[in-house]
Design a protein around this nucleic acid. Sequence first.
DNA 1: ATAGGAAATG
Length: 626
Amino acid sequence: MKKFNSFPIIKTNLLSHHSITITTLTLSNEQQQQQQTQTSKQRVSEQTCLSLLHSCTTLTSLTQIHSLILKLGLHQNPLVLTKFASTSSNFNSIHYASSFIFHSHHNADPPSFYDAFLFNTVIRAYAQTLHSKSMALHFYKTMLCYGVLPNKFTYPFVLKACAGIGGLNLGKSVHGFVVKLGFEDDLHVQNTMIHMYCCCEGEVEFARKVFDGSPKSDSVTWSAMIGGYARSGRSTEAVGLFREMQVVGVCPDEITMVSVLSACTDLGALELGKWLESYVDRMKITKSLELCNALIDMFAKCGDVDKAMKLFRRMSMRTIVSWTSVIDGLAMHGRGLEAVSLFDEMVEQGVAPDDVAFIGVLSACSHSGLVDKGHYYFNSMEKNFGIVPKIEHYGCMVDLLSRAGLVKEAVEFVQNMPIEPNQIIWRSIITACHARGELKLGETISKELIKSEPMHESNYVLLSNIYAKLLRWEKKTKVREMMDMKGMKKVPGSTMIELNNEMYEFVAGDKSHDQYKEIYEMVDEMGREIKRAGYVPTTSQVLLDIDEEDKEDALHRHSEKLAIAFALLNTNPGTPIRIVKNLRVCEDCHSATKFISKVYNREIVVRDRNRFHHFNNGLCSCRDFW
DNA sequence: ATAGGAAATG
């Protein structure tokens, strides 16, 4: 009789008082057990252990249950051991559990109580824990060595671990086992397989093969594949697959929407993004926290930061990711003061900023010239929040000083940094040198940078721009020759524009479009009109060694101008034009776009590699420093 | 007992 009412007491005591209670109750439990028969004793202690494990959360209580298990002689009870392993929620506890379970059997025959369930539990615990994926695979191998046959539950865990490690050969060999054991048609296994291949660097094609060969598919299958394309920067294919999914008639869920939204964000396709939002509403897809965050990020990065802000304000629950998305969004649009005050509001509300949030607020300061505020937040990181600044934060600070024209301070800052500067930092300084006329310094640093990172194109472009400003054409030509000698190809600049549910991409001198004749006529007309309004071409940045008139011609064929001409031809007067560039906007295009916005009375929103430019009536929101 | 998703210095 006693055994039944002792049960709840143990449970409640464990929950409220932790360790000390367990030890005392252990003794009293043992005293009870002595009066009972062997079998019922076993059963009761098994139940006790399982129940204790059920409410066990810390490593300390786990170690105490461990000694209890030993005392009660349950160390070969698979049920108890499995529960013990599944209780482990972090690396320390799963490590503790697995070494206890598998200890001392290494050289002997494996005990008969090892079963697939026990291994699965250990593999799962490791696969779900950060930085311990290889341990998951270690136990999978142990399982095979011991002759314990994996079941269909084993592989999703194993494949998840492979995905975390990312080796293709590893993945392929596990894939082989899956096929051999006949689990390849299991939907869970197949979906994780797709995800695993997507996570192997550059192996989305393997995932696609599994995807195409799958006899069944559900929203998880499609989300895995769409997410895989999105993460590898193949956003067009991600969106295409989403459309295909609808044709096939598989219903997307909120995770599918997050995946396709991240592709849409990358494309900068605002119209598509709006459509996706309305689709979510129409299909009554749950607006989970993650989905709201994805929507906010999409609106901010597709150019409508006000809409992002509205959604953010309407959210009932927010995480640091939600805050960071809007702060970054405001920063990208050059609305630094708003970003900073939102950051303050976040801190006031008791949300602790993390290192990513600091990158956001620091880059907001940097893009809006808020030097003092930048210093303030940088200094508060470690002092008030215990976050040690990383290279990204130092990068923001160097950029902040550089953009503000404080080249000397930026260099000093780098010299006093406790960590090694990276190439991004040097490039910030070189850009500032170029802008502020510190051309000698810029040249020196550029040359050093080219030495240390000879295959990075932008290092040559920076040096070349400095020579152009120095009017040293022969040296500029030499830079071009150096690039040719190394067989380097310039990353072609491209501009995308969304029109009538399609994305159009232009590269410089592009003639692939049906309308190209009209587009080039429009480009010429634009050139004439803006010249009349006062535009002077900036030819010094053309990297090619050609004469002035041809340079001007080359500038006119920049992808950005082609896209704008295309938009002027195909959209209604007065409507805004939105374009997305893969590189930073060049000086000449920036100047020309200002004139175009005025002459044609259009708001032109340009997203370049780093930020947004809102052109209106001859002015740009970046105030000409970007 | 099993699978897919959100923010990041230029």
